[in-house]
Simulated assay, not measured.
Amino acid sequence: MRVGVFILLKVRDVSLISRIVSMKNAFDQWTSASLGEVTMVVVSSVIIYAVILAYTRFSGLRSFSKMSASDFAMTVAVGSLFASTISSSNPSLVIGIVALACLFLGQFLLALLRQRLDGFSKFVDNEPLLLMAGGRMIDENLRKANVTRGDVCAKLREANAFRRDQVLAVVFETTGDISVLHSQDQEGEIDQEIVSDVIDSELLFADTRSTEPTSLGR
């Protein structure tokens, strides 16, 4: 009986020691790197960074503009590809450069199609959505955009809008940004062309001045 207990304790000790050694090896691998690996990261970083700058000069100022949902996706994709290429041997440096070229070329072609084909933007991008018409919040559109009244009030504060009667419109843009159009002039008006592509923009040109309290609180 004693021999059996002794053997069981020894097995447990060996298992515990094995786990400790395994954890130590994993930690050492995580916190160390060979000279070759460090050199690979440095060289890859310089080359990929130079390639991105060259592609940006070629494709123009819109490369990282975030003017549309596709532009935002482009920015995220380039950042992810940059990180994976410089920190790992898979994908290879050449594959990373080719993939970046495809991303920039795709964005360039999308921008060209937007200019040449009427309605193409509506096909590839979401439409901006009106959240406030004058001082009145549009609850139905807030629900569509998954935005709360508190979110809108925070954006009004960022835009230095002190009262609701200063607000002309609040628009949820295709990139996820919220634009606040406001004026100190009580009789200020919005040019219809500026909001022509905004869903429910016709509410801005009806009698939309709110009778709700003019403070920004709920």
Rank of each mutant, 00 (worst) to 15 (best):
D207H: 14
F172Q: 06
V76R: 06
F108P: 00
R12P: 00
R19M: 11
V76N: 10
A77G: 05
F72D: 01
I178W: 07
S15Q: 06
D125K: 04
R143D: 04
R157K: 11
G60P: 10
L100T: 05
L129S: 04
S65L: 01
V98D: 02
M67S: 14
E202H: 15
I20P: 00
K24I: 06
D28S: 07
G188M: 07
V5G: 02
S84M: 07
D139W: 01
A69D: 04
G96W: 01
L142G: 05
L61V: 06
E140T: 08
V5Q: 13
I190W: 04
L105R: 07
I194Q: 13
S201Y: 13
G135L: 03
M40N: 05
S63H: 12
R163L: 09
D197W: 08
G96D: 04
S59M: 08
G96E: 01
A33Y: 03
L35G: 08
T208F: 15
A69G: 15
K66C: 10
E158N: 10
F58G: 03
I20Y: 05
Q184A: 12
G119C: 03
I7R: 14
A50K: 07
I20S: 12
S65I: 00
V3K: 12
F162K: 09
S68E: 10
T39M: 12
G60A: 11
I86A: 03
L181Y: 13
I194P: 02
S92L: 10
L100V: 08
A145V: 00
V76S: 10
T148S: 12
V167R: 09
F162Q: 07
A133E: 10
N90M: 06
Q29K: 13
T211M: 15
G134W: 01
L203R: 15
N25V: 00
G188Q: 09
S44I: 02
N141C: 02
T85D: 03
S201H: 15
I97Q: 02
V171N: 06
I86P: 06
I199N: 13
S59T: 13
T75N: 06
Y55D: 03
I178D: 09
N90F: 01
T31L: 14
I47Y: 08
L131S: 02
R136T: 11
I47V: 13
L181S: 07
R19K: 09
D13C: 04
A99T: 08
H182G: 09
